[in-house]
Design a protein around this nucleic acid. Sequence first.
DNA 1: TTATTATGTAAGCACTCACTTACAAGCCAC
DNA 2: GTGGCTTGTAAGTGAGTGCTTACATAATAA
Lengths: 195, 195
Amino acid sequence: MHDQTTSERILESALHLFSTRGYVGATTKEIAKNAGIAEVTLFRHFESKKKLFETVLNSYTFLPDLKGLLPQVADKPYDEAMTIIAERFYDKLSVRKDMIRLVQAEVQRYPEKLMGTYHKFIHELWQTLASYFYELQRSGTIIKFDPEIGARAFLGMCFAYFSATELMLDRKPDKKTREETLKGFVNIFVRGTTA
Amino acid sequence: MHDQTTSERILESALHLFSTRGYVGATTKEIAKNAGIAEVTLFRHFESKKKLFETVLNSYTFLPDLKGLLPQVADKPYDEAMTIIAERFYDKLSVRKDMIRLVQAEVQRYPEKLMGTYHKFIHELWQTLASYFYELQRSGTIIKFDPEIGARAFLGMCFAYFSATELMLDRKPDKKTREETLKGFVNIFVRGTTA
DNA sequence: TTATTATGTAAGCACTCACTTACAAGCCAC
DNA sequence: GTGGCTTGTAAGTGAGTGCTTACATAATAA
């Protein structure tokens, strides 16, 4: 009947409700109901709402890692590689939509914990793409510029596009529109950086 | 003693607390205390917390308008104009930080109202910058590309930079770092679009 | 069978929060 | 001064909300 454990179902339900209603706005009763269990069962698995929230934070990541992606595109032409990066980055953000919303909404309330992991992840993202740029600069494929600023620029426009469409307006653009927009971003960026 | 009216003080306090604690997390008691008035006075000015919230939403804008800025830079060289736009855009976002946080956090709760205004404002932003690009394309200064996608790309990287530094990490970068980063964005974008 | 474990139902407790009511005090116009 | 107008203090109400306790039920393991 259930292929997930009760704890997993609670965590999933909690992530979704925390992300849409916020920490204070999500009630334990509703989290339980959404998970298909009784409220008291929730407290048998997690000693308090606060602990449940912290477990959610530790159970899911909210940013994609590019590390696994880069080796796959390293030997492709520059513009093709950047297109793949843009689309995969957007896809992975999309899958983690709930978690991203949660972090954005609660970063004010839990600065130590959230900002710590946020900082770590985002820094790694930039560094990874920056190191790719650095290689291309050494091989003379692209011009010299601060690789980290370049990485921020590129990931920034992709993130802002994701944020505007899926986080704020909350309607996914159709595949074609999305591909054309990202391709437009890539074209400008690639033209602006190719040697 | 007070150069603002009581209602204005309440609205200001409410904006700040709604934006940092969220709608549910901000209590009327704390809003009143922060405004330096008694809680009951708050309810004499606003019939409910919900009405107060809606009044806050209607009292402040959260996105800068570029319309006033463009005429001032229209006759400057392209790269110089874009630098000014980037910096002013960032500045104005920075001033409206509270309101932006509020919109991001509560867009899930008040989709009709917030998404309506959000959509309207951001669309106008894009359109304004896009029309500037369109002019430059006609005069042959920059290459042909979808002006709206270009506008989204440029404003997107600026917004993402603002969001990462001031909304999430919550520490303003020093002026020099900020200027260098934005200049780096502009360089890539301008090189990528100049004819 | 018997004991253990995971879950459900039901009731309730302590607390907070939005909001109200009643009354007093200061201020300003006339 | 008198009468409005605004604000403050104090007390309270009713509806959640996190969390607990007590007891029953079903499945599983010994």
